[in-house]
């Protein structure tokens, strides 16, 4: 049964590289998953349209926190325009395991925080409709 929890997911969960907060962040946003009460906050430091630093905080399951850590790894150093193009599939590729619909919500929570925080809720609604 441990296939589901690939080593890489547990590694990001137990030893996240991007956990924390950024005082004076350009963008700070928090969302929760109403299904389970998980809550993730993402702080972004953006300079000249580039994400110079990004950190997450909050509580959640291994899937939601590991995917947050992996997502943040992905967006650090990218421009906000590039980040805008990250979609559900990008997260699934990072996680690399099939997810049930309920766990998909866990996996996508951090993407939602980033998208809503950086571009507003309109940007996210599209994604949810596509599910």
């Amino acid at each position: 049964m441990d296939d589901f929890y690939r080593e890489i997911i547990l590694e990001h969960y137990k030893h996240p590289d991007h956990r924390g907060q950024i005082p004076g962040a350009s963008i700070s946003h928090e969302e929760d998953n109403p299904l389970c009460g998980d809550r993730i906050r993402v702080d972004m430091l953006v300079k000249d349209g580039v994400v110079e630093d990004v950190k997450f905080s909050g509580q959640g399951c291994a899937i939601s926190l590991a995917s947050a850590d992996m997502l943040l790894e992905e967006i650090k150093g990218k421009t906000l325009d590039e980040v805008r193009h990250l979609d559900k599939q990008a997260i699934l590729d990072l996680i690399g395991i099939p997810l049930t619909p309920a766990r998909l919500k866990c996996a996508l929570l951090s993407l939602k925080v980033v998208k809503v925080g950086a571009y507003g809720i309109a940007e996210w609604q599209e994604d949810e409709d596509a599910e």
Binding site: M1, F4, Y5, C36, D38, A62, I63, S64, T100, C106
Partner: peptide
């Protein structure tokens, strides 16, 4: 140390 969501997923495998 184990979120209940992860726990439910793990025992579901069995």
């Amino acid at each position: 140390g184990i979120h209940p969501h992860d726990l439910a997923t793990l025992v579901d495998q069995d």
